[in-house]
Design a protein around this nucleic acid. Structure first.
Lengths: 164, 164
DNA sequence: TCAGATATGTCAACATGACTGACTTAAAAT
DNA sequence: ATTTTAAGTCAGTCATGTTGACATATCTGA
């Protein structure tokens, strides 16, 4: 018989490592969203508004359908948030030139200001983490995050992220 | 005057890198939670149930107050989820021996089975990402995630994660 | 050109999980 | 004995997700 006490299996160690990676993600994500969350409160907005502002800001002229696909939510969920943002003058819609059914979305100046306000502390937080961890660690961070995504979706997501 | 076209500023590049890191986190987190989310549906549970089952599983005998502190939610929010899990026999409570006001929480066998079921595909996903990225990348991933956490909270969170 | 497909928006209804604030009970601590 | 603490509860609110059905305008292909 093997000695159970003195020879912990590599499998157990790996299990522990995985669990730590999972918990670390849980806690890190909470801090990751904490800065914008605090700002959004002042506007009586939630994370959903942030996501819309972010992706419209990064993809000016995006269609509603594309936005739905990025956010992976239903039309109805988006609708509430989007109409609020349009009514309050953060986002503007204009009909597509090729297809006039489309409503191409973009940030107004006011919307751009909000986007900057929300993004700034979050970028600051990520910048600090990058700086502290070093360039090599950043590369690892990106590799692992990408690996968490279903293999078949990676290319599409990468092309969305790396676009400009 | 400097040539704006041919010499993009390092600041711009850094901005882009930060934005990519932010978006990557957004997408990765969605996949990260996707496996347990699908399972939870079958039990008519949500992410909140998962978090409770997870942290009770990893900290048998945890008090309600400690659990609240880890989850950073209110008593009322926890209450609904926790009472459901207790009623349905996933979690058991026993009075503390030193302080009988406390209800020490632990998983029942049924609760442990649920924890395993939820954790297993998530661990599989993380394991795959780790394997594909390599040990060095994993170290970087952990460094950056830790760096996203407020410096003053890191020690406490690390001690929670690395406990056993 | 017209029928069907598509892009968007809207209505109604519902579930989850977060919040606040006030209050109760039991037990511990001073 | 009084105060503090641990836990639970009540009542209400909000944000954000869901489904399914339907309306309108526009585009596209036979």
């Amino acid at each position: 018989m093997t000695d159970l006490k003195s020879a912990p299996s590599p499998l157990f160690l790996r299990e522990e490592e995985l669990r730590q990676g999972i918990e670390l993600m849980f806690f890190a994500y909470r801090y990751f969203t904490s800065d914008p969350d605090a700002i959004l409160k002042r506007y009586q907005f939630g994370r959903a508004h942030h996501r819309v502002v972010h992706f419209v800001g990064r993809n000016p002229g995006i269609t509603v359908a594309e936005l739905l696909s990025i956010l992976s939510i239903t039309k109805q969920s988006l609708s509430r948030v989007l109409s609020t943002l349009v009514e309050q003058g953060f986002i503007e819609q204009r009909p597509g030139t090729k297809d006039r059914r489309q409503r191409l979305l973009s940030l107004t100046e006011k919307g751009q200001a909000l986007e900057d306000e929300l993004a700034s502390p979050q970028k600051g937080r990520v910048a600090r983490a990058y700086r502290e961890a070093g360039a090599e660690a950043v590369e690892g961070y990106r590799k692992v995050l990408l690996g968490l995504i279903d293999a078949e979706d990676r290319e599409e997501i990468l092309s969305r992220i790396i676009k400009p």
